[in-house]
Design a protein around this nucleic acid. Structure first.
Length: 120
DNA sequence: CGACTGACGCCGA
DNA sequence: CTCGGCGCCAGTC
C-alpha cells in the first residue's frame, strides 16, 4: 500500500489526486500524504518531479490562496495561465480557497490516501 | 561542523 | 492587513 512509498512519492501521488479546476495548499498536501507539519517538503519535492510521471504542480498554493512564486515571475505567470485554463479565477495573485480548495471525498481518503493503515 | 535558505504555516500583537 | 517569532528540515555554503 501507499505506506511503502517514500515521502516524495507519497507527496507526488497526493498532488495527482487534485481534480481539474480545484487547488490545494502545501500544508494540506503534507497532511494528506501522512506528513503533518512538512509543508516545506512539499515545495521541495515539486522541484524533483520525475519527467515520466508529471504532477499538476500548478494546483498547489499557499494556505491563504496566494501563488507561491514572486509576482510576474516566469513560473507565476505559467501557473496563473494553467489555472485560468481550467476555470480557476486568479485575482490579485491569489485564488479564493473557500471556493476552489479541494476537499477529498471519503472513497479517495480510504482508497487513494490509505497511508498508515494498521490493518489490511 | 554551524549558518543560512527556502514553491510553507500558524499564532499572537 | 502587516510583522515577528517559532516550527519544520534537506540541501547548500
Amino acid at each position: 500500500m501507499m505506506t511503502d512509498f517514500t515521502p516524495a512519492e507519497r507527496i507526488w501521488h497526493t498532488i495527482r489526486l487534485i481534480p481539474e479546476g480545484k487547488v490545494a495548499a502545501y500544508g494540506q498536501i503534507a497532511d494528506l500524504a501522512g506528513l503533518p507539519g512538512r509543508a516545506r517538503l512539499v515545495g521541495r519535492c515539486l522541484k524533483f518531479v520525475p519527467p515520466e510521471h508529471p504532477v499538476p504542480w500548478f494546483r498547489v498554493l499557499r494556505s491563504n490562496g496566494q501563488i507561491a512564486f514572486p509576482a510576474a515571475s516566469e513560473y507565476a505567470n505559467e501557473q496563473i495561465a494553467k489555472l485560468q485554463d481550467e476555470g480557476v479565477i486568479v485575482k490579485h495573485h491569489r485564488v479564493a480557497m473557500k471556493q476552489y480548495q479541494w476537499q477529498p471525498d471519503l472513497p479517495t481518503l480510504l482508497y487513494q490516501l490509505d497511508f498508515n493503515m494498521s490493518i489490511g
